[in-house]
Design a protein around this nucleic acid. Structure first.
Lengths: 66, 66
DNA sequence: AACTAATGTAAAATATAGTTTACATTTTAT
DNA sequence: ATAAAATGTAAACTATATTTTACATTAGTT
């Protein structure tokens, strides 16, 4: 699962901890998702995209093996 | 988490088992997600939307408490 | 009415997402 | 160069998604 979280965060100028607060998860969860370590739940993926005012498909992309 | 899976399945005229096969999960998983019993992983949500040639946001919608 | 396909559901087990605490490393600001 | 903020990471734990097996109910056929 690829994603543009780092870029979108940079645009909003917010930290991983800020984003974590906004979508109500731990900072480590954002860090892991941003690093592509695992696929979040759909609900979380949607909340993250929502923060960036983007669609899920604009923020996340499936890759081989997902 | 609300979704339009039943409707989109009807348009494609495929069963829950068909969809399950296509996205490589069990039929019960599709049944539970379609019934809104839980939020799938983002990867699965994206695969399901992909089958319908729709975006995730067109197929799934966040609701209070998600 | 009988038969079959499709759907609903449940319990136990496994896999994976997400938390918490804690510390190390890197980046940014002073 | 130093301090502070941000990020990376790890282990143990909890929560939840998904599987498997199995059976009950509903819808559609013949």
């Amino acid at each position: 699962m690829k994603n543009r979280i780092r870029i979108e965060r940079a645009i909003l100028n917010i930290t991983q901890a800020d984003l974590a607060d906004r979508v109500q998860v731990s900072r480590q969860t954002i860090n892991a998702i941003e690093a592509g370590k695992y696929s979040p739940t759909l609900a979380l993926g949607m909340k993250i995209a929502q923060q960036f005012e983007k669609t899920v498909n604009e923020v996340f992309e499936l890759e081989e093996g997902d």
